[in-house]
Simulated scan of single mutants.
Amino acid sequence: MFWLCITSLLSVTAVTSAQNIETRRIRVFPAANKSIAGVFQVSNLNDLNQPQYTFNASDARRLCSALGVNIASKAQVQEALTRGLETCRFGWIDEHFAVIPRIKALSTCGQSQKGLVTWRASVTRKFDVFCFNESDAATQLKDATTDSLLNGRDYSRKTQFPSKTASPTQTTHSTSSSSSLSSSSSTSKTIDREAQPARFVGGAQSSAGVKAILITSTCALLLTAIIILAYIKMRRSRALSSDAKQQQQEYIQTEEWTCVTNIKETNETAQEDERMEVDDDAS
Rank of each mutant, 00 (worst) to 15 (best):
E250M: 10
A72M: 06
T124R: 08
S174F: 05
Q170P: 01
I71T: 05
K74N: 11
V123Q: 11
S179L: 14
A208E: 04
P30E: 02
N70C: 06
Q253N: 10
D192V: 08
R235T: 07
D136L: 03
T172A: 11
Q41I: 02
D94A: 14
D279M: 13
Y155G: 05
L150Y: 09
L223N: 03
T187F: 07
L222R: 03
L229K: 11
K126Q: 10
T139H: 08
D281Q: 09
D136V: 00
V210L: 12
G91T: 01
W257Q: 10
R62N: 13
P51S: 01
A57D: 12
M276E: 13
Q196A: 08
E95T: 01
A225M: 05
I252H: 13
S207K: 15
A208K: 07
L240E: 13
S174V: 01
R157T: 02
E265R: 14
A230D: 09
A239P: 05
A80T: 08
S73C: 09
S122D: 13
K245I: 07
D192A: 14
C131K: 03
F127V: 00
N33Y: 14
V260F: 09
A144G: 01
T171H: 03
Q52E: 13
Y251L: 13
S186T: 05
A31P: 02
Q253G: 00
D273C: 08
E194K: 14
A208T: 04
T224V: 02
I226S: 08
A121P: 00
T13M: 08
K126M: 00
E277I: 12
V12M: 00
N20K: 14
Q246G: 06
F161E: 04
T169K: 08
A204H: 11
Q247D: 07
W3C: 05
G202M: 02
L214C: 10
F97L: 02
A225V: 05
M276R: 15
G110K: 00
L141M: 07
A57R: 08
R102V: 00
D243W: 07
W3P: 04
K114I: 11
V42M: 02
V77P: 03
T218Y: 15
R24I: 13
S43L: 04
L116R: 05
N46D: 15
T118K: 12
L141H: 12
D143Q: 15
M276A: 13
S184T: 01
Q205H: 04
W3V: 06
W3K: 05
N46E: 02
F130H: 01
S167V: 00
I191S: 11
K142L: 14
S135W: 09
H173L: 10
L10A: 12
C88I: 03
S122L: 08
T254G: 12
A98I: 00
L221F: 12
A98E: 02
G68T: 06
A270I: 10
T139D: 13
N151K: 15
W119K: 13
L10S: 06
S177V: 07
S177R: 13
R153T: 07
S177I: 03
M234H: 12
F130Q: 01
E256I: 15
M234P: 02
S206Q: 10
A239H: 10
R62L: 10
H173Y: 05
S237I: 06
R125G: 02
S176A: 07
E268K: 13
A138D: 12
L63P: 00
S242Y: 09
T266H: 06
L149G: 01
K74R: 15
K126S: 06
Q246I: 08
I228V: 11
G38S: 02
V260K: 13
Q248E: 10
Y155D: 09
T254P: 03
I36V: 15
